[in-house]
Amino acid sequence: MNIEQARFNMIEQQIRPWDVLDSSVLSLLAIVRREEFVPPAYRAMAFTDMDLPLPEGQCMLSPKVEARLLQELAVHKHERVLEVGTGSGFMAALLAHKAREVISLEIRPALALQAKINLQRAAIVNAEVRQADGSRGLADEGPFDVIALSGSVAEIPQGLLDQLKVGGRLAAIVGEEPVMRAVLVTRSATGAFHRVELFDTVAPRLEGFGEPSKFSF
């Protein structure tokens, strides 16, 4: 397989047609080596338009979803980012290239360890992976400019929104199958939030977040 041709095709045939037109995001996807964050058994599929399996039943979001979320978050070089759901570490790597600091929380120890290895191999020095339940965020270390949920939740906990600075943004995939939507929430004032629905998609659940009660009649 011609890796560079596959990377080019991913960007031009999957990502750009999905309204990812930010040149800084497209350049990052050409530079950060996605294949080095994919488990060896699936490396040949690193650039395909699908979620890829990770250990312990988890998965890596498709390239176009990661790219679109990154674009919508519009991260700046002076900003601090909290990510929930490290997975392979690829999204943390992308965020780290755009931010001052990234703290990424991964509940599964094996994934947290592998993500640390992947980030070290990619020479990413401003992203820290911690093995932790990220559903409550890091209130003691906030507020943050950006919070990224790299997976789906039934609803966004208010406790996470409260960890945004005024002007801060949170991106998440919200809802239940078969209907989920990527949303961007901006904290417009101390107690005010503005929510925009971005696109429909489906993503695996992040662990540790609550589910709505199901009533049977």
Rank of each mutant, 00 (worst) to 15 (best):
G175S: 07
D162W: 01
A93V: 05
E106M: 12
R16H: 06
L94N: 07
T201R: 00
R16V: 13
E177F: 11
A112R: 04
P39M: 07
L28N: 05
A46M: 08
V179T: 09
R130V: 11
P157W: 00
D140A: 15
A92D: 02
P17R: 09
G137L: 11
E72G: 00
H76S: 14
Q14S: 05
S23A: 14
F8E: 14
G85C: 08
L21I: 15
E36M: 12
L206A: 02
A67I: 07
M91L: 14
L54V: 09
F47Y: 15
L94C: 07
L105K: 06
V202Y: 02
L206S: 03
V179M: 04
L61C: 02
D51V: 06
L164V: 10
D19N: 15
R169W: 05
E197T: 15
V202K: 07
L161I: 08
F47P: 00
E35C: 10
L70H: 05
S216Q: 08
R187P: 08
R205Q: 04
K64E: 02
Q163V: 08
A30V: 00
S135V: 06
M1P: 11
A112E: 11
V202I: 14
L69F: 02
P212A: 01
D133P: 08
R205E: 03
L160E: 04
F217T: 04
I147G: 10
F217I: 13
A203V: 01
Y42Q: 07
T190D: 13
V153S: 08
G151Y: 02
K165I: 12
S24W: 02
L138R: 08
Q14Y: 10
A122D: 11
F90R: 04
V125R: 13
V179A: 08
M50N: 10
R121Y: 04
P63V: 11
S88T: 11
T186A: 01
G151M: 03
P63G: 11
E4P: 00
A110H: 10
A189D: 15
D51A: 15
L54A: 09
G210S: 14
L52E: 03
A171Q: 02
Q58P: 02
P40V: 09
D200T: 12
